[in-house]
Amino acid sequence: MLLDIRNLSIQLRSETSYIQVCKNFDLMINDGEICSLVGSSGSGKSLIINAIMGMYGHDMKVTMDYFKFRDMDLTNLSVAERRKILSSEVAIIFQEARASLDPELPIGVQMRASLGSHCFDDKWYRWPFWRFRAVNNILHKVGIKNTKQILRALPYQLSEVLCQKIIIAMALSRKPKLLIADSPISGMTSTSQVQILKLFHSYVENSKGTMLYVTNDLGPASNLMDTIKMLYCGQIVESGPKEQVINCPHHPFTQSMINAIPEFNRQVKLKMKLDVLKGDPPEFTQTPIGCPLGPRCPHADRECNTMPPIVKTKNGFFRCYYPLNMEKDNESK
C-alpha cells in the first residue's frame, strides 16, 4: 500500500470557534492504482489535499490516527518534517495553474529548476545540457509545439490552458511516486484532454506511478479511474470500483452527478431540462444534522435525521438509508 490515511479530520478556525470541515475520512491507495475523489465545488477536495501534504498554517487544525506513506510511518512527525519527506516523492497539479507558476521567471527557468539531479537517468556522457533536452521532450509530450517561444515567455503571456499543460509537464518530469492532480483537464478542448489523459495512463502503466485524481465531473476521465470515491460535505458517501459506481449508483448524490451529464441519461431529449438536486450544497457552518444530503435529497425520510451507517457492498461501501438500484446489485450476484 502506497498511502494509508485513517480517520482524518480537518477543522477550520473561525473568529469564535473551530468549524468541522471533514471528519472520519479514510484514504487508502494501492500501488499502481488511480484513485479518484469526485465532489461538487465546496465539498472540501482541495482542503483534503492540503491537509495530506501538510500545506496549511495556523488557521487549520488537522488530526489523524494513522498516516503511512510507502514503508514510513509519518503519524507522529511534525508538519514540517512530514512535508520534507513527502515533497521529494509526491507531485501536485494545482487547480489554478497560472497562480502556481512564478510570475517573474520565464517558464524555461522554472521548469529546469524543478528537475533535481535524481531525475537524470542516462549515460554519463550525456550529462551536459540534459535539463534543456528533458524539458523539451516533456513539453512535446503534453502537446506544445513551439517550445522555443514558450520557454522564454512569462506566465502572464500564456493562456490558462497552456499554463495547465506546463504545470502537468513539470509534475510528470520529476517522475514522482504519487501524483496528485486537482481537476487537471477542466476547460480544455477534447483533443488536449485525450493527450493529457494518455500521458497519465502511460505514467501509471510504464513508470509504475500512482495517482490521486481529484475532479468535479464524472464525464471525461471516468474510464481512467480505478476506484471512485464520491465526496459530499467532506464525507465519502459512496465508494467502489468505477463500473459499479457508474452502472448502478446506490447513493442519490452519485445518481444526480451522473444524471447531470446529458449523455449518461438516455431519456433526455433535445433541449430538455436536466434534473438537478434542488438548492445549494450547505456551507460548513450549517451542515445539517444527520445525513448531509438531507434537505436536498428526493428520497429523504424521517430516519435521515440521524447519521446513516456504512453499508458494505461487494468492493465498496455507501452511506444511505434508502439506497437506489439495489435490485441490480442482487441480479448480478
Binding site: 461538487s40 465545488s41 476547460g187 438537478v276
Partner: peptide
C-alpha cells in the same frame, strides 16, 4: 463564454437549465 465547462456537473446543469428556460 466557455467558462461554463469549468463549473462542476451540478452547477453546469443548473446553468444550462436556466439558459433553456
Amino acid at each position: 463564454d466557455s467558462n461554463i465547462e469549468k463549473l462542476d456537473a451540478q452547477l453546469r446543469s443548473h446553468c444550462l437549465n436556466m439558459l433553456l428556460d
